[in-house]
């Protein structure tokens, strides 16, 4: 059981294989990728948060009262984040593991939410629930939350939603960090099936290069 530790992201051998074997991604694989975006592509800026999917899940299922939520908000320094990216799973309770990933994005300046789902907004309801809890954690007054759904590349198979979440998060984060200068490609062109195949295959090398530098 080999484990890689990169900042605070843990990746077991079996998690890494999910990329190369064209399998469904789990939260550890996604968290590893998001951690890489944070440190390698937006250089650890403290106004961006790419939330660990396990933390999203914890926030949804384990924060029973306001105090728990405030502890979490404090631990993550939520009030200083201009942009928060939250991978949303359709898992509804602790008995299931879920089946689909999508990405919810919070913009502090406008207190608004955008939602990117590679499968026809399958997770929109879950995203609404996450938005409600995040609002609470941020101390936002109770309100009707509008979630905007910009055009999002759509997956053409039954395995890649986690890859879409990773690459959409990558595009959004780099755009944010470069004031929209790069990537020059549109989201649709950036997150292509070819790119997904390429990244899946390249992950073992990417991981190796990250932990040796």
């Amino acid at each position: 059981m080999v484990m890689v530790l990169y900042h605070d992201a843990q990746l077991y051998d079996q998690d890494l294989k999910l990329f190369t074997q064209n399998a469904w991604l789990n939260d550890a694989a996604i968290n590893f990728y998001l951690t890489m975006i944070y440190h390698e592509m937006v250089h650890g800026r403290d106004d961006v948060l790419l939330m660990d999917p396990a933390v999203v899940s914890c926030m949804m299922l384990q924060c029973d009262d306001e105090e728990d939520l405030l502890d979490l908000a404090h631990g993550l320094q939520l009030q200083f984040k201009k942009m928060i990216l939250l991978p949303v799973n359709d898992r509804e309770n602790f008995d299931s593991q879920g089946s689909h990933w999508a990405l919810l994005v919070y913009h502090q300046q406008t207190k608004s939410y955008k939602f990117y789902d590679s499968s026809n907004n399958h997770n929109l309801q879950s995203a609404r629930e996450v938005a409600q809890v995040l609002d609470k954690a941020l101390g936002t007054k109770s309100r009707h939350i509008e979630i905007e759904c910009p055009a999002c590349p759509q997956q053409r198979n039954g395995v890649d939603c986690g890859m879409y979440v990773c690459l959409i998060a990558e595009w959004l984060s780099i755009r944010y960090a470069t004031n929209d200068q790069s990537p020059v490609e549109t989201l649709e062109n950036y997150v292509s099936p070819q790119k997904i195949r390429h990244v899946r295959k390249a992950m073992p090398n990417i991981v190796a290069s990250l932990i040796t530098t």
Binding site: N26, P53, S57, C58, W101, G158
Partner: peptide, 8 residues
């Protein structure tokens, strides 16, 4: 928290 997965 428990492992979560997703694909389709």
């Amino acid at each position: 928290a428990l492992e979560q997965v997703g694909g389709w």
